[in-house]
């Protein structure tokens, strides 16, 4: 949370390795389980879980941002929409194939993210958070204002088959699963990469990082751009799994959902964590579809509760345990 387990400092190898195997086993187990799941479930759940997986990528992008720059975004629906509409427009216009569309969508989102974060690069994080609020709110109005391009309320159709002969439901499912695997893999490995280490150093030890030429401003810009790229990637997959894009799927509320998912997943970059967060925000509205107000309250309690438990309660317990142990010694 405020002190994510990812730090720029080299970790204690001996203690970490045991934990690491557990993490890896859990990840592999999750992927295997998800891979076999279509054997047992019907088409409704297949579709729901496809959406959940695509949503997971977007949740990952929010977690990534919080982890690497300490910024909260409530405007990531903008980048998800950028990715989704980019792929839809590329398909409907120049008829670009799916994979090409995904690559372009990811790149465009990264560029838009960079552009957006640029003015606040030297300011404190609160400014960025507040401006993301406006970013999140303006998505539907922009899409509706330029209806000739975006298809207005009805939106645009997205081709949901890549290869012939396989049911589109299954294709949507496995594409979403593969995409989530790729996204979590990249996000997780990012920590060890040169850029990742620089960003983390700039976050924790700004002066040291500045000596390497990474100011905290440019570190924040990089983190934001990567996060926007992940969100755009997720958006293009979301467009594929829903086989259409329309303004209603990218309202401000979706950003709130993404943040709740990220917090519930404890900003995890592991696939099992992301799936838990995504499952929470997918299942709660489905179970409580007739009680809209309770969804708000449950989401609010989840944000508040998780934050307080992991920032106040857990550290307090840890402190007490440590103190007791010291006494005994």
């Amino acid at each position: 949370m405020s002190e994510p387990s990812t730090t720029a400092l080299p970790a204690d190898r001996t203690r970490r390795s045991a934990v690491r195997i557990d993490d890896r086993m859990l990840s592999i187990g999750t992927v295997l389980l998800l891979g076999l799941l279509p054997i047992w479930i019907g088409s409704f759940w297949l579709y729901s879980i496809s959406l959940l997986l695509a949503q997971g990528i977007a949740i990952l992008s929010v977690s990534f941002l919080i982890r690497y720059s300490g910024e909260v975004s409530i405007g990531h629906n903008f980048f998800v929409a950028t990715g989704a509409y980019t792929i839809a427009l590329l398909q409907n216009g120049p008829n670009v194939p799916f994979l090409g569309g995904v690559v372009v969508a990811t790149a465009v989102s990264a560029a838009v993210g960079l552009l957006f974060a640029w003015p606040s690069r030297t300011l404190s994080g609160v400014y960025l958070s507040v401006v993301t609020l406006a970013l999140g709110l303006c998505v539907p109005e922009v899409l509706l204002y330029w209806s000739e391009v975006t298809g207005g309320f009805e939106g645009l159709f997205v081709e949901s088959r890549i290869v012939g002969g396989v049911a589109s439901g299954l294709q949507q499912y496995y594409v979403a699963l593969a995409a989530l695997c790729i996204a979590t893999f990249v996000a997780h490995r990012f920590r060890g990469s040169r850029l990742g280490l620089m960003i983390l150093t700039a976050r924790d030890h700004p002066h040291a990082a500045a000596a390497f030429g990474m100011t905290s401003g440019s570190a924040r810009l990089s983190a934001f751009a990567v996060s926007a790229a992940i969100a755009g990637f997720g958006g293009s997959i979301l467009g594929f799994t829903t086989s259409m894009v329309s303004p209603n799927s990218f309202i401000f509320w979706n950003s709130v959902t993404l943040l709740v998912g990220a917090v519930v997943s404890l900003y995890s970059t592991r696939i099992y964590g992301v799936v838990v967060g995504a499952a929470f925000v997918t299942l709660v509205p489905q179970l409580l579809s007739n009680y809209g107000q309770f969804i708000l309250i449950i989401y609010g309690l989840a944000l508040l509760g998780v934050i307080i438990v992991f920032n106040v309660t857990v550290p307090a317990i840890v402190r007490r345990v440590r103190r007791r142990r010291n006494h005994r010694v």
Binding site: L259, F294, N311
Partner: peptide, 25 residues
Amino acid sequence: LLQRAATTATIATLGIGLIAQGMIL
């Protein structure tokens, strides 16, 4: 939370906002 990081406190206020909105509804 404030003693630790403003980011977490900010997220907590978002949660409080959602609860208040839900209570109104």
